[in-house]
Design a protein around this nucleic acid. Structure first.
Lengths: 158, 158
DNA sequence: TCTAATCTTGACTTAAAAGTAAGGTATCGC
DNA sequence: GCGATACCTTACTTTTAAGTCAAGATTAGA
């Protein structure tokens, strides 16, 4: 239930694009790679995933680069995370696939819908946050999250 | 941001123990392994993690086995998930560790606290659910989640 | 049209997570 | 005490995710 490296770096790159957008610029892979401290190859892979999903658009050739396909205020974190994490989340349990007659006590342990719902809870929480909300200062971010989820802002700037 | 195999199987085993507890029984590794369709070795590893964290207690020797260390109504999902996922979640970004001067636009991209807060959001959502709430039928589970999070119950029993 | 810059794509390598195996230790029942 | 049962722990193997490489394709500008 942790955010993966791909998810975090993809989100970071999107934020960089959102900032650049405000200045009427697009960013190349080498710029993104320098900004986030990852390789251009890895940045390219992330951008490819995001462009396939319609979140960013690319321009090839000299003066090319990447920019957001939609306004930052219309890009929600749940979509970003879902795109970057690949296949949709589902139960890892193989017992129900005919391997074993599991959960003998009741015939069904009732956990399958829980797994789905847990992801739904996360999705709902993330759907309330847009890219543009993350663009301000750290204080603003804390305030936004505080308002949305009732979470106390903490002093955890690493 | 997905639930991992370890997290799911650990949670499943806890539910089995909670059921057995209701009948005054404990469960051995081979029983757990049969119930959930995983190897005894793997079940043993999970139980070891959970017992280290004080969530389950073990009895050795003949007639031994595992049982919950506390009532199911006092075990909350956030604790279960956090224990099973290992080290606490933190930012994957290495740029701030002196490798590069990242986030040149503002000097700080402001995403670090967001990563922490995202995990906090998930934690808060999971803290509202106890093991005993998951023990009922699927319908009950859906109802419980609905009440807690305002999520519409869905027909997604796989 | 030629060249340099830039994205695109699939295959490959490396690192991390998941799962397995085996020997050790404690407990119970006889 | 002795043997059977069952947990405990470390090390190893397998699998999956993360990250890299390199050749190809596209565009802008000289």
């Amino acid at each position: 239930m942790k955010i993966s490296a791909q998810e975090e770096y993809g989100l970071r790159c999107l934020l960089q694009l959102a900032r650049a957008e405000g200045m009427g610029e697009s960013l190349t892979l080498s710029q993104l790679s320098r900004l986030e401290g990852i390789s251009t190859a890895n940045a390219g892979k992330l951008m490819w995933i995001l462009s396939k999903a319609g979140l960013v658009q690319s321009t090839r050739g000299t003066k090319g680069g990447y920019s957001l396909a939609r306004p930052a205020s219309e890009i929600r974190l749940n979509r970003v995370i879902r795109v970057l994490e690949g296949e949709p989340a589902e139960s890892h349990c193989k017992s129900y696939a005919g391997v074993l007659d599991a959960c003998v006590h009741t015939g069904d342990c009732g956990i399958r819908p829980v797994i789905v719902e847990l992801h739904q809870i996360v999705d709902n929480a993330l759907a309330d946050i847009t890219l543009s909300q993350l663009l301000g200062t750290e204080a603003n971010v804390d305030a936004a999250l505080h308002q949305i989820q009732g979470i106390r802002p903490k002093d955890n700037r690493v």
